[in-house]
Amino acid sequence: MRFWRTPLDRDKFECPHGQVFIIVERCKGCAFCVEYCPRGVLEISEKFNKKGYHYPVAVREGACVDCNLCEVICPEFAIYTECRNECAEDEAAEEASAQPEGGEGTS
């Protein structure tokens, strides 16, 4: 993950890792998910579904950060992501709720 400045507490946080699910038969090949994925996870497949549309496939699934943009921008309700490091996310959330007071106080 690229940062415009490295946060001081970066080592305490873990990037969420998402898993992409694609409902192939709903896809109409608009490629919005491929174009708008900020991490370049998806690519248009060479295969096509029953209706003849080329659907996306996750070629760099390790890069998914569960930002959910593909799910929201997909006009076909054909793609969604799920968070795959729940424990890490819970810890990060706890830390995030504890951190801001201290962090903002110093700035």
């Binding site: 109409k28 090949g29 608009c30 919005f32 549309y53 799910e71 929201v72 921008i73 997909c74 006009p75 076909e76 309700f77």
Partner: peptide, 11 residues
């Protein structure tokens, strides 16, 4: 249609 924006609005 493919690339129509209405589906995104519904989502």
């Amino acid at each position: 249609c493919p690339t129509c924006g209405i589906g995104t609005c519904v989502a």
